[in-house]
Design a protein around this nucleic acid. Sequence first.
DNA 1: GCGAGATAGTAAGCGCGCATACTATCTCGC
DNA 2: GCGAGATAGTATGCGCGCTTACTATCTCGC
Lengths: 153, 153
Amino acid sequence: MSLASRHDSADDSPGLLLWQVTNRWQAAQRTALKPFDITHVQFVLLATLTYLETSGPVTQKALADMAATDPMMTSQVLRTLESRDLVHRPPHPTDRRARAVAVTDAGRALANQAVVAVEACDASFFAVLGDSLPAFTGTLRTLRTRTDGDRPG
Amino acid sequence: MSLASRHDSADDSPGLLLWQVTNRWQAAQRTALKPFDITHVQFVLLATLTYLETSGPVTQKALADMAATDPMMTSQVLRTLESRDLVHRPPHPTDRRARAVAVTDAGRALANQAVVAVEACDASFFAVLGDSLPAFTGTLRTLRTRTDGDRPG
DNA sequence: GCGAGATAGTAAGCGCGCATACTATCTCGC
DNA sequence: GCGAGATAGTATGCGCGCTTACTATCTCGC
């Protein structure tokens, strides 16, 4: 069985489609966030942190777990955000290994503005699905849950 | 409206789900392709090229269009594949700007082995969807088609 | 206490994905 | 021919996503 039989126009498998659609979604997010000069990941961490920090000190690991991002990448992105004074990372009050990440006033303001653009972008991107959006979201949730076993629990 | 209202467990929007599921799919692909020591993108280009080259000389641009990959990235990945003797890139016979990319025997052999692992990986990843896989694929295709306007046509 | 293992974070490096800028060549109007 | 614009490809740089290796600190059994 050769490779050729798999292709009609280089876009058959659900995995390839998933990849291509996600690339386009990220491009849309990039466009929407351009006025704020932050990336999609930077926005997600900023927004998640804004939500999390209402209930006490947040470590980088806790933030990475909540946002489902890689801890190493999270560390790097937070340092980038810190260099722009959107977050600060003082020592954690009780764990000297950790840092208590917190969003600054500027970071909170930027996040609250950016979230409007991001939600509009998302709504526009998925508008074509209409009533089938909930089913699509449910399917994605199933896929994410099903493959949770890969993660360190 | 604050950011906090958007979150139940940092995973509400379809876009975020899409992103997370794609990351997990890529991780699965990475694992499946590890024995062959190539990445997902390298495999896709190799497989697409294997399919395309049966009908004449293939430029890097044509390959990038077919695989829906970025031309700059495609150029870089092809040079990586060339350094491993999986493809070669002689001058194009009629267009002196271009190269006639072709897969080597080693590249073709590797692709034909890897495609089995990739297909098994895909089948396993999406197995949980059962009968709803066609609907999911159709939805993805809709999203990709709907956002085609962003691309240079 | 105290030593072994677990955990939070950093450092360095690789490949993808994209943006900008550039060279070389092709194409088309004249 | 020949000059203007389009096109194929490369170079450079940045941020994501992950891997491996490392330090500092915490936790738990003894």
